[in-house]
Design a binder for these strands. Sequence first.
DNA 1: AACGTGACTTATT
DNA 2: GAATAAGCCACGT
Length: 120
Amino acid sequence: MRTKKQKQDFFDRVFKIVAKIPRGKVTTYGAIAEVCGIKSAARTVGWALNGASMNYLPCHRVVNRNGELTGKVHFGDIHLMEELLRGEGVEFDSDGNVDMDKHLWLPKKNKSKIKSKRSS
DNA sequence: AACGTGACTTATT
DNA sequence: GAATAAGCCACGT
């Protein structure tokens, strides 16, 4: 029943995934989007979090592919995110980016039939 | 219904 | 390697 509920499903997935992010870890929009079923809709993930602002989702644990705190603008203060993540044990780079090599956490798909097309 | 925007990503110049 | 263009999906006007 791919009705309007579909989009709600997408949002719901994002919420759940973000909520599952372990403390002291971060993930990327692309990863979330992929697990949600649309790997190419990283922007939409941001939109989901946009509505999640009123949720209890740790949006500060979601960064872009570069480990950069992109959502700071809508979140309020980048400094706040830094402190939050630092308080969780996340290390930051000299540029104020998250150390992806250490704290990058990839969500796992439960049973979604994702069609992966990893061809370069 | 159509155009424009957006917390992104990848490819090309 | 930095900057620009295009692609992607959902929402707002």
